[in-house]
């Protein structure tokens, strides 16, 4: 066993090298960023103190003279409505794009084009889509829904296409052999067998769209609780009202998250 006294050299493994380089690069970038970014010459200690004091008011004394609890609730329901419309429109369009994007249902060139289109749509931030459509439709709910729908389409197309691809090729083959055409296969085999996945993915997107709808209310003048948040903090500087709104959003978001976690569990379980 003398030959083994010498430990053979360790070959470099690509994945390890890549992870190390990446983490090193990110650490370097972060240090560079924190050192060079212009943070606007604010007094950090004072700002932190102020923020803590603000947070205390926001979270310990929610309330407000302008906005009652009930009207805040009404505004949240409007936000939920925006999220629902966005998800529905996005889902319907994504259903067709998903069929075109699934590799077991469509020819390769079509899937490539669909997936590239979807990636392009996703690369534009939601707020920019909304503002672009606001030029034609005016700032408000209509532009917000149309703009947000674009992102939902891109997210759901990818999710739906993957769900369709899970369907066994042999099932499609069997139906083809029996003389069924493409549409018959889609409606009799593909959609029924992946329906519960589709529903779960759609619900996950609904949760995301709720947060988006709040953001569009604040940044693009869509109605709903986001706009109230923007007014309370940006115009009236009313911290107690900000607190009330934050609590209500938090309650709804957590409820949606709990439901979405169950939906996700279903996807994983079946997958």
């Amino acid at each position: 066993m003398t030959a083994l006294q010498q430990i053979p050299g360790r070959p470099l493994r690509k994945e390890k090298v890549v992870i190390r380089l990446l983490l090193l690069g990110l650490a370097g970038t972060t240090i560079y960023a924190l050192a060079t970014l212009d943070f606007g010459g604010i007094d950090m200690a004072e700002a932190v103190r102020d923020t803590l004091a603000n947070l205390k008011i926001i979270f310990l004394h929610p309330g407000g003279p302008r906005l009652s609890f009930l009207s805040a609730l009404e505004e949240v329901i409007i936000t939920l409505g925006l999220a629902f419309l966005t998800t529905l429109f996005g889902g319907i369009i994504a259903l067709f794009l998903g069929l075109l994007g699934a590799q077991n249902l469509s020819p390769k060139p079509v899937t490539v084009v669909v997936m590239a289109l979807v990636a392009l749509i996703r690369a534009v931030p939601t707020i920019l889509w909304v503002l672009i459509f606001a030029v034609a439709a005016g700032l408000g709910s209509t532009a917000a829904v149309v703009g947000m729908t674009f992102h939902s389409i891109s997210y759901l197309t990818k999710a739906y296409a993957e769900s369709f691809e899970d369907l066994d090729r042999s099932v499609i083959e069997a139906l083809k052999a029996s003389g069924a055409n493409w549409w018959q296969i889609v409606f009799q085999a593909v959609i029924p067998s992946s329906f519960s996945y589709l529903l779960s993915w759609t619900f996950l997107r609904f949760e995301i769209n709720f947060a988006n709808a709040v953001a569009m209310g604040a940044a693009a003048g869509a109605s709903g609780v986001g706009f109230d948040l923007f007014m309370a903090s940006g115009f009236y500087f009313d911290l107690r009202e900000v607190g009330l709104i934050t609590y209500i959003i938090l309650a709804f978001a957590m409820a949606l998250e709990a439901a979405a976690t169950r939906a996700k569990g279903r996807i994983k379980h079946a997958g």
């Binding site: 066993m1 083994l4 006294q5 430990i7 053979p8 360790r10 070959p11 493994r13």
Partner: peptide, 21 residues
């Protein structure tokens, strides 16, 4: 320790797989 490890690995006939995942 590394030397011991390679020795034990050799005893178990795994020398060829020393750096394999």
């Amino acid at each position: 320790e590394k030397r011991q490890a390679t020795e034990v690995i050799a005893m178990l006939g795994l020398s060829d797989h020393l750096y394999q995942r």
